[in-house]
Design a protein around this nucleic acid. Structure first.
Lengths: 328, 328
DNA sequence: TTGTAGGCGTTATCAA
DNA sequence: TTGATAACGCCTACAA
């Protein structure tokens, strides 16, 4: 592997001059620069990133801390994060959190710190992860994809509340007045936002709210909930906090003889690729996961570079009505 | 940030001794080691990975080259890769391939090489990606998750062929004799393997084979195929190369008035989480994606370390029969 | 068993 | 506009 000195020798300049060319230093004579660039391409020289990281103590690596495996939303966002990061010349080091204990989180962050990542994008949407991060002694810029709105400056949110509210209002507009919510786990920021949207929508319409059923995002839980709920007859619609649970729910209903949408309307959240193809096709709320990831990177980089943090409008969600919701 | 010399000073030894402790050098007096470890924990010292990478020209980073976004299988495998890599003290740098042109692949590999990754796990299962990699001038150990079996030493395969064959045989055992295959894209290794399993199963049973329908893995394509196939009446079962297409296919059939499994049996591949919950529930072939990732890492690390490459038995797939397949 | 000297490839600082 | 010199934090080699 050629080094900067090999380039310098070939170009007949000092290695320092090569460095200047590499870093777009302003004061350098065009013809010198040309010579250097020539030598670079002849030798197929590539700067050694480790050496650069050592001396600048900047790695040009962004860490991604995730706590979700194989799920459509987060993984789509990660793709967005990577694209945006690469575009800006950063590489991406991902780390999967097994547990979300404070200890595990601390270790993960320390590990990323060891790798000298310049900042971290967090996709571990539990409230407590957020708290742990804020309390960390390791100083490190970070952005949480699911940051609760209103948290000191670092706000980034697909408007989950508005989306959930739109879903609820859709059900209301169809004539439903007894609407249940199959919520996500208690500790999850997104679960809270979607529940809030649900509650807001109902309150605004002066309709009764029900205590939410707490799920775990999985289709299996949805199935279980469907079986259980089939015994109740005090509702005509369910808003599930994500599509997976909604699909499981419909399955549970089906097995219990409850027809969707004839007896009960169901709406989900996320618009995963199968939502349009299950039977009945699932009404849901679409969101642009990759864009969320891209925005997170822009915000993080602004923080790292000390620039003004860009203000994005809330990322729009989009209601997709399909067969699973019908008028009462 | 404390350096190795700060630790040395506090422990009253030379920085070299600290380095020895760090690297588990054999000849070091226990009490000296204790002193050093003490100083390390007092200062909360963490080795600078960039410095280490610079001098050893090993980064302890594994690159992951992927060409799939948000899909369940690959992303699950990536999780396995990360876990295994972290366990072995490696971090993971992921890079998403936009296009799979030779040029894009070359750039991606060069980028990872710049980052000094010690090896690459490739999740870009197109045949041509594999070829490009083999022909690269950049010397770099790599493992492809979907390596075609029999390719020089670096073999790693969930037994797609056997799984696809099991799926086909399941249909045959139910009394079907006219079985179509909804295949993946031409260039994909997995698509070829699954198609081969299909062909093998049919030939073994002396049943007619049909030219496969070439899909693109998406549910939308499956839907389209379902619509088209509903015009044909020369088959009673379809083996789809993945669950997403199978689910879309069932949707297409449904919309065209073809009943599954009454008129046509359908079986998929992958066992994605919703497969057990769609209507009808989808028979499919389960495979352990995370384990695939873990194995890839073990093989790659063996290559990197110059150890004997572990020989794994083919990763078993598991037939899951559900409602979408019924006897003729 | 421990310490000293040198260098990995780059950028920063200062001088020319 | 350019060049010489000194770090950055660590490891390898050799010496003690």
């Amino acid at each position: 592997m050629p080094s900067i000195r090999d380039v310098a020798r070939l170009a007949g300049v000092s290695h320092q001059t090569v460095s200047r060319v590499l870093n777009d230093h302003p004061s350098i004579r065009p013809e010198t620069k040309a010579k250097v660039l020539d030598a670079i391409s002849v030798l197929d020289y590539r700067p050694n990133l480790a050496a650069r990281a050592l001396v600048t103590s900047k790695s040009n690596i962004l860490g991604v801390l995730s706590a979700t495996i194989g799920e459509f939303g987060p993984t789509s966002s990660i793709a967005g994060i990577e694209d945006a990061a690469r575009e800006e010349g950063y590489s991406v080091s991902t780390l999967n959190l097994g547990a979300t204990t404070p200890e595990a989180i601390g270790n993960a962050v320390r590990q990323l710190a060891r790798e000298q990542v310049d900042g971290i994008v967090v996709l571990a949407p539990q409230v407590r992860v957020f708290h742990v991060l804020r309390g960390m002694t390791v100083e490190m810029p970070f952005v949480s994809l699911q940051t609760a709105s209103g948290s000191d400056g670092v706000t980034l949110s697909a408007d989950q509340v508005a989306g959930a509210r739109a879903a609820t209002e859709h059900l209301i507009s169809l004539g439903h007045s007894d609407i249940l919510h199959l919520a996500g786990p208690q500790d999850w920021i997104e679960a809270e936002s979607r529940m809030r949207g649900y509650l807001d929508g109902l309150r605004e319409a002066d309709l009764p709210t029900f205590p939410p059923i707490r799920g775990d995002w999985t289709a299996d839980f949805g199935y279980f909930a469907g079986q259980e709920l089939s015994r109740r007859r005090d509702f005509t619609a369910v808003f599930a906090a994500n599509d997976l649970m909604a699909i499981g729910l419909m399955h549970g209903f089906r097995d219990a003889g409850v027809r969707v949408p004839h007896d009960v309307s169901v709406i989900g959240f996320d618009d995963i690729p199968v939502a349009a193809h299950v039977a009945p096709t699932l009404s849901t709320v679409h969101q642009d996961f990759p864009e969320l990831g891209r925005r997170a990177v822009r915000i993080l980089l602004a923080q790292i570079r000390g620039e003004a943090v860009p203000e994005f409008g809330p990322l729009q969600t989009l209601l997709r009505t399909r067969e699973s919701t019908a008028s009462r």
